[in-house]
Every structure is written in C-alpha cells, then in structure tokens.
C-alpha cells in the first residue's frame, strides 16, 4: 500500500478510484484517436496532427457536493494549466495549483512511449516537475503497445507504478 504515500487519502476513496478509471478510458481513447493510423500507416479517422505525439491530460476535481468530476481532455494540463469554463469561444485558463477544487492530474502519454520509457529518469523528471508545479499528485498512464493499462503516480519526489493496486480497488 505504498501508493497511499503518493496520493494520500485520495487513493483510499473508492469514488476517486472509480472516477480515475473512467477518466483513464477517456484520456486513453482520445490519445489513441489523435494518433490513429490506418493499415496503410496513413492518418485515419480521428487523427489530429496537433494532438498526435503529445501527451494529453485532464484535471480531476472534487466539487462542493463531494463528488468527483474530470475536466476536458487537452494539452494544457501537461503544462500545469486547465480550461476552467469557456465562454463558447475561448477558455478561461487557470493554474491547477490555484484551483482549490483540483485534486489530481491525469496524463496520457502518446503510444510511442513504451513501458521502458517510464523507467527513464528524464521522463520521470517531467512529471515530477509537473506534480511540484501543480502541487497535486500526477497520474501518468501509458497508451502504447506494452504500456497500455499501466499507470504510475508521482507526488514530485517518488514515481510509483500503481495499476495492480487500482485494479484490486475497483
């Protein structure tokens, strides 16, 4: 149960784990769609040149009614910002660290990032830094061939694999 160290009481909350798993599905499908290529290796339905080869993320919030919700999937969460409401045209960007309702950040890395990449110190440093900047635990999930279904969590100091724990908690 080392996981508790990284995300505190959050990961003891079944409601959070349940929402995290739903959010993983959302991020995963959007990352896979953005990088979608057909059998001929040409961009296929859903392929998005701007989002392809880029990590996508979202913010998990705890509302006043104590229920968890997740934000839209985008490229901004990986830069420590979130689109907190929109007027229909432009987002109202806020720093995640300044959003009192934000409890965690979930990032889906592109399919090119394989399981081995998660062991890279440089790779880990990116998300440790994001966790320190946002002051929230950052969950990093893989979407590639051997990294699909894998999720790590970082609190800025440690970087721990947690997928099996989450499965047990479902």
């Amino acid at each position: 149960m080392d996981l508790i160290k990284e995300c505190g009481v959050l990961c003891d909350d079944p409601a959070f784990i349940s929402l995290l798993n739903r959010a993983r599905g959302q991020v995963g499908s959007e990352v896979r769609a953005a990088n979608n290529r057909g059998a001929n290796n040409k961009p296929a339905v859903g392929h998005d040149a701007i989002r392809a080869n880029a990590p996508l993320g979202l913010v998990i919030r705890k509302d006043k009614d104590l229920s968890y919700k997740y934000s839209r999937v985008g490229t901004n969460a990986t830069a420590g910002r979130e689109c907190n409401g929109t007027n229909g045209l432009v987002c109202n960007f806020v720093n995640i660290s300044e959003d009192n309702t934000a409890v965690a950040v979930l990032v889906g890395v592109p399919p090119r990032v394989r399981l081995e990449s998660f062991s890279s110190e440089h790779f880990r440093a990116v998300y440790k830094k994001l966790a320190r900047e946002t002051e929230r635990p950052v969950f990093v999930m893989g979407t590639g061939t051997n990294a699909i279904g894998i999720i790590y969590v970082t609190d800025g100091n440690t970087f721990t694999r947690v997928d099996m724990t989450l499965k047990a908690k479902r």
Partner: peptide, 29 residues
C-alpha cells in the same frame, strides 16, 4: 521522443524543460 519540441540547448532537452522550447508540428503522412 515524448513530444516533438525544439529545445534551446542540450541541457534543456535532457531534462525536458519545455518552458524553453518550441512545439514542432509534425504532420507528415
């Protein structure tokens, strides 16, 4: 590797300091 970017220097690239980098849009078929 992780995101297509042009970094200011190799030190920034090694540590993936994206603040000092520019996004590169690779739209090749």
């Amino acid at each position: 590797f992780h995101q297509d970017r042009l970094y200011l220097s190799s030190e920034h690239a090694e540590n993936m300091i994206s603040l000092l980098s520019i996004s590169v849009l690779d739209d090749t078929e």
